[in-house]
Design a protein around this nucleic acid. Structure first.
Lengths: 135, 135
DNA sequence: TGCAACTAGTGGTATATTGCATATAGATTA
DNA sequence: TAATCTATATGCAATATACCACTAGTTGCA
């Protein structure tokens, strides 16, 4: 995969950055990918596009950092894989039971976040309708 | 309203903090409230609970600071209101056309964010179903 | 009179998160 | 052999956010 171009993060201004609008959203994405099966950093970065990190790609350094952090916290374990597909050695990550639990916690939190968002958008639409009635 | 107790913000760990999981989410909330009509800081803080800032209340200083920032950027204007309901003077904010546009931009972005979230949660559920089938 | 709620701030510190630049190195291909 | 792809990092600075402490004045009530 060719080197991805990164977009500068701008708080509220400029272009949309939807997946990045949520704090640490990469973390549950990585955990879900790993729940589906062991994988290594570089491949995870590609797989992340599934969750919207395609349009505004995430910096690889962020991914590698989170993976190391998760390993420290025992959410994942890793082993080096040298032989096999060729290419430089890869660090292959695997999710742990702690990681499973943490993922479940994230899902609960994101469901709440989704509700909050939905409520806001509904309030916006409702207000705008009323507003246009007495234009 | 009695003084609100604040909960400590913890990146990913600990209790949920759903509305705060979204970057600067207070900003569009304030703009929507002001789009419904002029209001002052203290009252806006209370009204924010409508958007989920009730369970994990936001620090008033954050709100006041955003209001000033928005005024600098001409998204809102303010006037002092001394007479009327009594009590100390209030700075009453009103949204500008620029503020309207900015709110609309936010809504577009949040709709994207909502989609991303929905996609993630769907992927989680789908995977978990499959997973439990070959338990 | 004194306290609580109303109202609007400022200042400062600590921590989190991200973005960018850069280093390193094996493998493949032109 | 040079470029490019694969792969994994680290360090640093900019930005964001949270939280705490403090000031300062008004009104109403027990």
């Amino acid at each position: 995969m060719p080197r991805m171009r990164r977009r500068r993060w701008k708080g509220g201004l400029g272009q949309a950055a939807s997946p990045r609008r949520i704090y640490r959203f990469v973390v549950p994405c990585l955990l879900l990918l790993l729940h589906r099966g062991p994988s290594h950093g570089y491949s995870l970065i590609e797989e992340l596009s599934e969750f919207g990190f395609g349009e505004s790609p995430i910096d690889p350094s962020v991914v590698y950092r989170y993976l190391r952090e998760m390993e420290e916290r025992r959410l994942v374990t890793s082993t080096w894989q040298t032989e096999g597909g060729g290419g430089p050695p890869r660090r292959v990550y695997q999710i742990t039971p702690d990681g499973d639990q943490y993922l479940a916690w994230w899902v609960r939190d994101l469901r709440e976040t989704a509700k909050v968002l939905k409520r806001f958008l509904a309030a916006y639409e409702e207000h705008m309708e009323e507003d246009s009635e007495h234009h």
